[in-house]
């Protein structure tokens, strides 16, 4: 079991999300930032890769979490955590680029962490199955972003699940919010490290 990233005085955590247009990578970054703020981190940021994305194309989104105001405005080149919403991306993008040695790559897959050899720590969660279990579909396709953030939160000491649920309530309504909260709880428990 890998230890979670520890919250320290100099606790800036930089996170990169890889997915495809339409999978909700940007929403994932925003949900995380909201949850991190509600968990008491004064410095949070979420931003998309500054490009012209479209549905199906590779998409990147970023988040920063710190206990004090974040003044950085530059891109994230050395992430602490990389979240892969779609492992197919790994055929075309080097997702390990710049990742810190003690960093974590969190993958959406039914496979185990030891099935992957990366120059950093690995965690996995079967977010696609979790999205299907909880009926989180858009146009018949499972949407994994909330499940991935649910799993991610279990790897962070400074963001709690209750804040993420609050973020989901803020973003979604009714049955959609309920389903996403169930997915987030399930992913949070089922993440493998």
């Amino acid at each position: 079991m890998y230890s979670s990233i520890q919250k320290t005085e100099m606790s800036l955590i930089e996170i990169c999300f890889h997915g495809r247009g339409g999978q909700g990578a940007v929403t994932a970054a925003n949900l995380l930032a909201f949850a991190a703020l509600k968990s008491g981190n004064n410095g949070v940021q979420a931003f998309p890769f500054f490009g012209a994305e479209r549905r199906g194309a590779p998409v990147k989104a970023f988040a920063r979490i710190d206990n004090k105001e974040v003044f950085l405005r530059s891109e994230i080149t050395h992430p602490d955590i990389v979240v892969i919403l779609d492992t197919g991306i790994m055929d075309i993008i080097d997702v390990t680029k710049g990742v810190k040695k003690k960093g974590i790559i969190l993958l959406n897959t039914s496979r185990q962490p030891h099935d992957f050899s990366f120059p950093c720590q690995v965690a996995t969660v079967d977010a696609t199955s979790i999205a299907l279990d909880n009926n989180i579909l858009v146009g018949g396709t499972p949407v994994v972003n909330t499940s991935m953030v649910g799993a991610l939160v279990s790897l962070l000491d400074n963001v709690n699940l209750a804040s993420l649920e609050q973020a989901i309530h803020d973003r979604f309504k009714g049955k959609q919010a309920e389903n996403n909260i169930l997915a987030v709880r399930q992913a949070n428990k089922e993440v493998m490290t």
């Binding site: 930032a33 410095g43 949070v44 979420a46 931003f47 998309p48 974040v70 405005r73």
Partner: peptide, 12 residues
Amino acid sequence: YDGFILSHTSMP
């Protein structure tokens, strides 16, 4: 304010 760097970035 800067395009993308502020326009598309969520901050508290």
